[in-house]
Design a protein around this nucleic acid. Structure first.
Length: 890
RNA sequence: GCGGCGGUAGCUCAGAGGGAGAGCACCACCUUGACACGGUGGGGGUCAUAGGUUCGAUUCCUAUCCGCCGCACCA
């Protein structure tokens, strides 16, 4: 009967995980119910870009969200997790352009706008499906019936509504300003889409001759090719060196154009020569200087980054090629020298091309009116960053923010709803495509060719996914605002801040209560994963080799929130070991159940000491893990549950349970079976958000109440289980067992070899130890177990002294006196040290006076225990000496 | 220049005002009726450095060193 087959069989992660996910989907467990009895709890998933596949960072992010949403669902919330994908304008367009070019050797212009865009849609369909299957493979319990894409009709409607509203309120405007331009992508970029990289470049000193022949003025520049756009040279008004040349005129090289010397305190006299060429069309600072002095702006570059007709004979050359040629000519003319110069050069975030500050007409969002409330809401704690330090980063950015350039010269994205009139030149911005110009009534309208920055639509994600603006009574009313957002710190500016100000503006509510910021997943050497390093790890490969459960557990316990983590396969293996351990422990439980077992707990009076202990620990673990999870301390919570399951449940309780399961007293069998089942059930529930698959699989085989562990109630605080007496008692029993084992090990006595064990406890522990005798018998294998405060120890023995019990093994003929003396004297030395330490501490009047009473009391108890132990160890040590002397005397 | 993070056992990381923990690795023993992805026992840390606060600091404060990151400027 004991050896019946476990219904669990062999663990096959791949087959099992796929099958379970399918079943969850079929049963609709992921769908938010809308149950009015339940409180809603909502998370919107940061939509992955449809550019390609998911990486470990996505896996971490989604695991965190799934963990939270699964716990909340079990806690009885109407939990909603909205999945989706982002169209990722530049990134996706670039990928598809590359694909078209590679496969057909054609550019997007060869295809034409409509044909190209339909190619991108095809790409989107394909990769959205890849991403969907990857998220599923991870076990994400998101509500697929509410999946969204940033370019869905509803979300596009939201984009248009937002654009038009902001335009009407004067918060969106079009203008000719310096923006960041990527000549490769041929589009404008926002400030944060530019990545600055420290580079070794050159500082060129060029001498411009005065028109009146009175010598030259030497300027310093890093970009000599822009000299064709120079409209002035500026010096500091207070700079004595140049005061006399202000107002004079200079002649530019390569041409006859003359420019004035002006004074502006923007100039730093310490830098370079103290004289700066002013090129308003190609430098943001120069642009401002130009405006202050009413200077013209000469744009000398094409959108591809080539010099245009203003550059004379250099027209048509690429900007870097032109720079070389210009420098060469100026050097031979003797008017240019160069020095090495370190400076940060902006690169396109998507393609790495050096970004060009470029004057062009673009659409902007006026930021200040939006940024102020967005800062407030975080400052007031209505939205909280976890860890809190990220709120500083957020607030710092918002307080220094410049207007947001939102137009992109791309084809993939939301087309800007602005229409220009061919007759009056007026602009019409409207919710529906206009038939006629609002200014003059002409029907000769053409829509702006450009699309909006992807982040413009992502910024609306928390409410656009819920039906805003069309359906405000449905999901939006119930599930917005959301409770939690989980994302990486790299996206705080791009996305989090923008969602917050857009939500505040359009819904008057912050979009989330908590923003969880996690760190980066790095490789085993601490480097970022990157294509160029070739160190990428596909989460699907990890799942394939181990399991989604293991990957999830590893990621979520790998580091504290906000801290970067290194990805080590060894740690996935460790997580997999836990999965296996859970599986095997469950097999044990199941193969020891009787078919007619009724689900439930044994009555309190039927519970064994071990039962009481494990229920107490279950209770502790439940409280602690719940507290930690609710504080978003996932790694801590994972550890708490891990330790309970492995150490308390497997190493101790299961071993102890064997006494009752296989023992002679049949009455104890059923209570133990019930406790095993109960504790396993609840431990699985605690583990489920971490490891959804294996816990579901096991739970299905368990006597249970419910259809799926996904919807089983989250374990609650159960006062009835609180049992400090059982906890203390078992702690002592465990100490005793451990000590006996240690003595056996030190004396090389295998557990299979029986040996007499004598325990001399303090009287108050007599009953507990007596009760625990069957456990000690099973785990220590004594030939005879004596438990008696007055027991006499045999002459030939080894001993161990605990605070509350003395332990002796009877070892006739086996005691190595000198080894034993060494061991005891080490022990004695250690105890003496501790006693001394505590005596000194307690002799300190300041300590007694100022430390909390409880601490002082604790230290006194410690001292007392140590003193007693020392006394006994010293006595034993002395006894050995006399035995040794006797032997020598013989 | 401004700001942030990290420096704890060989490795990766937790932790916390009252003489430091885990996983992996290591050593010894064990095929004990769930599990060798296991069991039992063990070794290993002046908690980066120097000051300060405190009865007490590895934990709080200051400075320094080392590693990393963000922002700003860069003609």
């Amino acid at each position: 009967m004991k050896n019946q087959e476990s219904p669990l069989g062999v663990y096959h992660a791949q087959e099992m995980e796929n099958r379970i996910y399918e079943w969850w989907m079929q049963e609709g467990f992921f769908r938010a119910t809308g149950d009015a009895q339940k409180k809603p709890f909502t998370i919107v998933m940061p939509p992955p870009n449809v550019t390609g596949v998911l990486h470990l960072g996505h896996a971490l992010d989604n695991t965190i969200q799934d963990l939270i949403i699964r716990m909340k669902r079990m806690q009885g919330y109407d939990a909603l997790w909205i999945p989706g994908t982002d169209h990722a304008g530049i990134a996706t367009q670039t990928r598809v352009e590359a694909q078209v070019s590679k496969e057909e050797g054609r550019s997007r212009h060869d295809l034409g706008r409509d044909a190209f865009v339909s190619r991108v849609w095809a790409w989107k369909e394909r990769y959205a499906e890849v991403i969907r299957s990857q998220i599923r493979r991870l076990g994400a319990s998101c509500d697929w019936s509410r999946e969204r894409f940033t370019m869905d009709p509803g979300l596009s409607k939201a984009v248009r509504e937002v654009f038009v509203t902001l335009y009407e309120k004067g918060l969106i405007y079009r203008g000719n300003y310096i923006i960041n331009w990527c000549p490769r992508c041929t589009t404008a970029l926002s400030d944060i889409e530019v990545e600055y990289e420290e580079t070794v470049g050159a500082l060129y000193h060029i001498s411009y001759p005065f028109v009146d022949g009175s010598g030259t003025l030497t300027i310093a520049t890093t970009r000599p090719e822009t000299l064709f756009g120079d409209v002035a040279v500026a010096v500091h008004p207070e700079d004595e060196r140049y005061r006399h040349v202000i107002g004079k005129r200079l002649r530019l090289p390569f041409g006859e154009r003359e420019i004035p010397v002006i004074a502006d305190d923007y100039v730093d006299p310490q830098f370079g020569t103290g004289a700066v060429k002013i090129t308003p069309a190609h430098d943001p600072n120069d642009f401002e200087v130009g405006q202050r002095h009413q200077l013209a702006a000469i744009n000398i570059m094409t959108k591809e980054g080539k010099l245009n007709e203003h550059a004379g004979k250099f027209a048509g050359l690429d900007r870097f090629e032109a720079r070389e040629k210009i420098v060469a000519e100026l050097v031979s003319a003797g008017v240019l020298t160069r020095t090495e110069h370190h400076h940060a050069v902006g690169h396109c975030e998507r393609c790495g091309t050096v970004v060009e500050p470029w004057l062009s007409t673009q659409w902007f969002v006026k930021m200040e009116p939006l940024a102020v409330p967005a800062q407030e809401v975080v400052a007031l704690g209505k939205t909280q960053f976890i860890p809190d330090r990220f709120s500083k980063i957020y607030s710092h950015w918002l307080s220094n923010i410049r207007d947001w350039c939102i137009s992109r010269q791309l084809w993939w994205g939301h087309r800007i709803p602005a229409f220009y009139c061919a007759d009056c030149g007026g602009t019409t911005v409207s919710r529906e495509d206009p038939m006629v110009c609002v200014h003059c009534g002409s029907s000769r309208l053409t829509q702006d060719e450009d699309v909006l920055d992807t982040w413009f639509s992502s910024a609306l994600w928390p409410f656009s996914t819920m039906g805003w603006p069309e359906d405000e009574a449905g999901d939006l009313a119930r599930y917005f605002p959301t409770q939690v957002l989980s994302t990486g710190f790299d996206i705080i500016y791009f996305w989090v801040a923008r969602m917050i100000f857009m939500s505040l503006f359009f819904t008057s509510q912050p979009p989330f209560e908590y923003v969880l910021i996690h760190g980066l997943v790095r490789d085993d050497q601490g480097r970022k994963f990157s294509k160029s390093l070739g160190n990428g790890i596909d989460p699907m490969d990890v799942i394939e080799k181990y399991s989604a459960d293991a990957l999830r557990f590893m990621l979520v316990t790998g580091a504290a929130l906000g801290q970067d983590m290194r990805f080590y396969m060894e740690r996935v293996e460790a997580a997999q070991a836990l999965v296996t351990k859970i599986w095997n422990a469950s097999r044990f439980v199941l193969m020891n159940l009787d078919n007619e077992l009724i689900y439930g707990l044994p009555a309190p009076e039927e519970r064994t000491l071990a039962d009481r202990y494990i229920l107490h620990r279950l209770q502790e673990t439940t409280s602690q893990a719940t507290r930690e999870l609710e504080a978003f301390q996932f790694a801590e919570a994972g550890k708490t549950i891990y330790e309970f399951f492995w150490n308390d449940f497997c190493d101790w309780y299961i071993e102890l349970s064997k006494v009752h399961l296989y023992g002679t007293d049949a009455r104890q069998k059923e209570p133990t079976q019930k406790t095993l089942t109960y504790v396993l059930d609840h431990a699985l529930r605690l583990l489920h958000p971490f490891m959804p698959f294996v816990t579901e699989q096991i739970w299905q085989s368990l006597p249970r109440d419910g259809k799926t562990i996904m919807l089983a109630p989250w374990p609650n605080f159960t006062e009835e289980f609180e049992d400090p007496a059982a906890a203390d008692g078992m702690a002592l029993v465990m100490d005793v067992i451990r000590s006996v084992r240690t003595l056996r090990h030190e004396k090389n006595i295998a557990l299979s070899k029986k040996v007499e064990v004598i325990l001399r406890p303090k009287a108050k522990w007599q009953a507990v130890l007596q009760q625990a005798a069957p456990y000690i018998n099973r785990l220590c294998n004594p030939s005879l177990l004596v438990i008696d405060p007055d027991a006499a120890f045999p002459e030939e023995r080894v001993t161990s002294v605990l605070a509350d019990v003395e332990i002796a093994l009877s070892l006739a003929g086996l005691v190595d006196l000198s080894a034993e003396k060494t061991r005891l004297s080490e022990e004695k030395k250690h105890l003496e040290f501790e006693v001394k330490r505590l005596q000194t501490k307690l002799a300190n009047e300041n300590f007694i006076a100022k430390a909390p009473v409880a601490i002082v009391e604790k230290e006194r108890e410690k001292l007392h225990d140590y003193e007693q132990q020392l006394e006994k160890v010293a006595a034993e040590w002395a006894r050995l000496f006399s035995v040794a002397n006797d032997r020598e005397a013989e």
